[in-house]
């Protein structure tokens, strides 16, 4: 019989929106909602649509600021995407929000046919990308990037933190055409302000140099990669981190330039299944260009993922800072 003293601390199954911030991490609340409100003050053509997830995508801030430009579509993602396309056809710039699973899997044909096929100016901003909830496969969008990458003309963004989001919002609005942006909402980590960094659509940015390992990452995995780099520095392993917030179109030139430097292990780290995400995109770019470094992928397995507490799951699937650090040490051994 177990006693309280012998019980391990219990990690509870995550709330729907689990924090992805590390302990002690600085955060900013609702960077997407705030950035959109700021932008919409200058851009009257911006409208906001959601499918019963305004509060959970931070779009409620836009709805409060511009109630006449906010449209609740109900829990109806096909309607959400098609109606966003219809508003774009009438000259508006819709920002449509839902969870990534519903925006991609549920409404895929509507994104493909209504929005992308006509190159309509719709910005899909989808929360809970990859493995950022413990609710199991119903809510885990482990394959969202693979789906939207496959759509011709779709720009695909995977921001790392609050700064990235704040700068990406006006940047995707300045781009005429459909955009899929992975959304981090709630209290979002802030770290890129410590680097000489600015989001530029279509550009990969080297956040730190290093001679032993090149980590190529997007989204929250850039935050993890920077932590891994710090951890490995203690072991005299010198890790470079290349942040790739635009998954499509891919900044092949920068990736090739960095990956061509000899002697470094190239690791692509992504909060996404091994199938069809950044890892495969980078691998294709390298092979096509005849660049063949030692190459490894840190990604979610091609599997239906477990439910549970997010830290447990990130450890289990190898995308926590500790798990990544150990994995890379193994590869270097």
């Amino acid at each position: 019989m177990s006693t309280a003293a012998t019980k391990k601390p219990r990690l509870t199954t995550s709330a729907m929106i689990a924090s992805i911030a590390s302990e002690g991490q600085r955060t900013i609340a609702a960077p997407f909602g705030k950035a959109l409100v700021t932008l919409a003050e200058q851009r009257p053509e911006i409208v906001g649509l959601t499918a019963d997830l305004a509060k959970y995508t931070d779009l409620h801030l836009f709805g409060q600021a511009f109630p006449e430009r906010f449209f609740q579509m109900g829990m109806a993602e096909q309607l959400l995407m098609a109606a966003a396309g219809g508003m774009a056809k009438e000259g508006f710039m819709p920002f449509a929000t839902t969870y990534a699973v519903f925006g991609t899997r549920r409404a895929f044909d509507f994104v493909h046919q209504v929005i992308a096929e006509e190159n309509l100016n719709v910005k899909l901003c989808c929360a809970l990308p990859g493995l950022t909830t413990g609710y199991g496969p119903s809510h885990q969008a482990a394959e969202d990037l693979a789906l939207v990458r496959a759509i011709p003309g779709m720009t695909v963004i995977d921001p790392c933190d609050a700064l990235d989001i704040e700068q990406a919002v006006p940047a995707i609005a300045a781009h005429n055409g459909p955009v899929y942006m992975r959304l981090l909402r709630g209290n979002v980590p802030l770290l890129l302000d410590e680097y000489d960094y600015k989001f530029e659509l279509g550009k990969a940015k080297l956040l730190r140099g290093g001679n032993d390992v090149l980590l190529i990452s997007s989204g929250i995995m850039t935050m993890r990669s920077l932590e891994v780099a710090n951890a490995l520095a203690a072991d005299q392993v010198d890790v470079a981190v290349l942040h790739v917030p635009t998954i499509k179109p891919l900044d092949t030139a920068t990736i090739l330039a960095e990956a061509s430097r000899s002697g470094r292990l190239v690791v692509v780290a992504e909060n996404h299944t091994t199938v069809g995400g950044l890892g495969e995109a980078v691998a294709t770019a390298l092979l096509t260009a005849g660049v063949s470094p030692q190459f490894r992928q840190i990604a979610l397995p091609d599997a239906f993922l477990d439910a549970g507490a997010l830290p447990t799951l990130h450890d289990r699937y190898g995308i926590s800072t500790d798990a990544m650090t150990q994995t890379i040490k193994t590869w270097l051994a």
């Binding site: 396309g85 219809g86 774009a88 056809k89 009438e90 508006f92 509507f110």
Partner: peptide, 12 residues
């Protein structure tokens, strides 16, 4: 559903 969006847009 596209018509819904266009009708909302026209009204706006």
């Amino acid at each position: 559903p596209i018509a819904v969006g266009m009708a909302l847009g026209l009204r706006l």
